[in-house]
Amino acid sequence: MKKNIIKILSGILVLGTMSTNAFAATDVVQSYKTTLPNLSTEINLVDKERASVTVLCSSNLNVEGGIIASKKIIVTSDVTRKDTGKSYKVDYISAKAKYYNNSGVFTGSSIDEQEYASHAGTLYDTTSSTSKGTAYGAHVYKSSGMNTVTHETKKAL
């Protein structure tokens, strides 16, 4: 009985190792979820001139508006070079604002998608005087030479 269990566990271990190696050969999506309104990730990549570059993918979610009035949810995604602080264009970048009311019901969203750009940004107006709820930001960064990076930011209103 013990030998059978050892054989089964060994087989699972071998299959797990094989699937990990197969996964590493594909395009990996790096996902980061946070309850914070701001998130940054450093990515090392090889640019089109074959130079090694470190870029910073910065995701931000801000809320403007009063306590009683509607609120504006502002979501931005930016890419900059770490060494110079200057903007760095990637193949695809997006910023999406999503709003859920106080009951957890999805009430709307807005999105900005850009190709070969370093910035994307969008604004969603809650258009409601009862603007308590939760704002989410969805940020995507894609470029050849780097893994796809997705961030999710969150802020209670």
Rank of each mutant, 00 (worst) to 15 (best):
N101Q: 08
E64I: 09
G85R: 09
N101P: 00
K132A: 03
T76R: 02
L56R: 12
S19I: 12
E113N: 02
I68R: 14
F23D: 13
N60Y: 13
S58C: 05
S94H: 09
A25C: 08
G65I: 09
V63P: 02
V105M: 03
T54L: 10
N44D: 14
D91Q: 06
D91F: 07
E42W: 12
D125C: 02
S128K: 06
E42L: 14
A138G: 06
A24K: 13
E42N: 14
A22M: 14
D78A: 12
P37S: 05
A25M: 11
Q30R: 15
Y92G: 01
H119A: 05
V55Q: 11
A138T: 14
C57V: 12
N62K: 14
E49L: 12
I73P: 01
Y99F: 13
K96P: 00
S77W: 04
T20Y: 12
T17E: 04
E64P: 01
D47R: 09
K86N: 13
F23A: 14
L61R: 04
D112V: 01
S77H: 02
S128R: 10
L36F: 14
I68Y: 15
Q114F: 07
S109V: 07
S19R: 04
R81V: 08
Q30F: 15
K132M: 08
S87N: 10
E49C: 06
I74G: 00
K96S: 08
D112M: 00
G65S: 09
Y136H: 04
S128Q: 11
G133A: 00
K82I: 08
S128G: 08
R81M: 10
S128V: 07
N102I: 14
G66W: 06
T26P: 00
V46T: 15
D91W: 03
N21S: 11
N21T: 14
G121R: 03
E115A: 13
Q30P: 07
G104K: 06
T107H: 03
D47G: 06
A69I: 09
R50H: 05
I93T: 00
V79Q: 00
T17L: 15
K86S: 09
A138N: 12
A69L: 13
I73A: 01
Q114P: 00
T76S: 04
E113A: 05
T130L: 12
V79A: 05
T122E: 07
N60R: 10
D78N: 15
V28P: 05
P37F: 05
S129G: 10
N62I: 13
G16R: 09
G16I: 08
N102V: 12
K71M: 02
Y124N: 01
P37C: 06
Y100K: 05
D112P: 00
G65P: 08
A69M: 11
T134C: 10
K33L: 11
N38P: 03
V63N: 05
I43P: 07
G66H: 08
T126L: 00
R81E: 12
Y88W: 07
K72W: 13
T122A: 02
E64H: 12
N44Y: 13
V105R: 02
A22R: 14
H119I: 07
F23G: 07
S118L: 03
A97M: 03
Y100Q: 01
T80R: 08
K96Q: 10
P37E: 07
I67A: 10
Y99S: 00
C57F: 15
Q114S: 06
I74D: 03
N101R: 02
D125F: 04
A97Q: 02
T26E: 13
V53E: 11
V63I: 15
G85M: 10
S19Q: 09
V29P: 02
S131M: 03
P37K: 04
